[in-house]
């Protein structure tokens, strides 16, 4: 049974099905743009509940994708623990151990992809202005100050035209910032200036500055924040990096030279 579950034939067919499902995803994300946008903004369980009634097809597609990924996960697990483990143990060769290790890391990365989706907390596009605060689980985020040193008319420009104006010359990413305080039970955990592409991180909590906004007749300057709490992120990036490194080492040590191939041909 384990041998069948870990067979290369099953890997091949699962990969082919996943390719078709991903291709269907390209189609669905074009046809149901709003639904997919919403998918990134809320927890996946909430998305399933909200979408099932109005558009069941994307939900069926999503569940099929999860099933395909689960089969691939099981297949990789059975193959690694069955065939590759015994091959590495029997031969004792470094390249076989590395091959086994590489597959284990793939399993970890695949699992992290799924778990990041299902675990943790998220609040998207939270609008905050100086002096305001916002609750996020047991935490409270207080916005003290917002500094935008560049031309404010860029922020008033419609989105489609805004991109052309947002050059490195016009937007000084290191100077524009928001001063935030992360509080838990009246105790200050972190106080930091956050910039675009430079979020506040405290343990598993991340406060990300998505964009600057202006509102009202008095041009009140504020920020749009994404709030996430996911303990797996750091582990995911570490496992992913080690997997790439292992693949690079495996490629280098199994790099076939012309002399070997020519020898085989003779």
């Amino acid at each position: 049974m384990i041998q069948r579950l870990g067979s290369v034939t099953l890997t091949f067919y699962t990969l082919v099905v996943l390719i078709w499902l991903m291709g269907a995803g390209v189609f669905f994300s074009t046809a149901h743009g709003e639904i997919f946008l919403h998918m990134n903004e809320v927890h996946i369980c909430d998305w399933i509940m909200a979408t099932w009634e109005k558009a069941p097809l994307p939900v069926v597609w999503f569940l099929s994708l999860c099933l395909g990924a689960a089969i691939l996960f099981m297949n990789a697990l059975c193959c690694s623990m069955g065939r590759q483990w015994s091959l590495a143990k029997k031969s004792g060769l470094f390249k076989n151990w590395l091959f086994f290790f590489l597959h284990c890391l793939f399993i970890v990365v695949l699992a992290c992809h799924g778990l990041i989706l299902a675990l943790g907390e998220k609040q998207s596009r939270v609008h905050l202005f100086p002096g305001q605060d916002h609750s996020f689980g047991p935490y409270e985020i207080q916005l003290t100050d917002v500094v935008f040193t560049d031309d404010l008319t860029i922020l008033k420009t419609p989105k489609k035209r805004q991109r052309a104006l947002m050059t490195r010359k016009n937007i000084h990413i290191h100077e524009n910032h928001a001063l935030l305080t992360l509080v838990k039970n009246d105790h200050t955990l972190a106080r930091q200036k956050i910039r675009m592409l430079s979020p506040l991180r405290y343990k598993s909590v991340q406060v990300t500055l998505v964009e600057f906004v202006i509102q009202g007749a008095d041009d009140r300057l504020g920020v749009v924040l994404n709030l996430t709490d996911n303990f797996l992120n750091r582990f995911f990036f570490l496992a992913y990096a080690i997997m790439i490194l292992s693949l690079a080492v495996f490629t280098a040590i199994t790099w076939k030279r012309p002399s070997c191939t020519m020898g085989k041909q003779r």
């Binding site: 998220k122 979020p199 991340q206 994404n226």
Partner: peptide, 9 residues
Amino acid sequence: NWFGDSWQW
């Protein structure tokens, strides 16, 4: 760093 997620749909 941009959206707070390591990947997006």
